[in-house]
Amino acid sequence: MENEVQFYGMIAEKLGISKTSILIDFKVEDVNVRDLIMDSYPLLKAMTFQIAINNVIKENISSAEVGEIIAILPPFAGG
């Protein structure tokens, strides 16, 4: 089963994509999403972003979170 990846704001604009899906190979229990996403989208290496998995800010994903939404979030600008 895959994870949906959502891109927001300036990141969605820069990459030209707002969502995709990835199949994560859990060779280890916790996989670093930042490394994984930057491998797939090298443009992100020059950008500031946070990662949320199932609406919680975190960097690592476990096999128990397969199917959850991964959000790639640029700097916030609310208010």
Binding site: G9, M10, A71, F76
Partner: peptide, 27 residues
């Protein structure tokens, strides 16, 4: 509350400029 909203809420703002270009706002 206002400080927490600015710090923690995933909201993004595209500032549209008078010449139809834009920049992304960052708190």
């Amino acid at each position: 509350i206002v400080e927490e909203i600015k710090l923690k809420s995933p909201i993004f703002g595209k500032e549209n400029l008078e010449d139809e270009s834009h920049v992304w706002k960052v708190n």
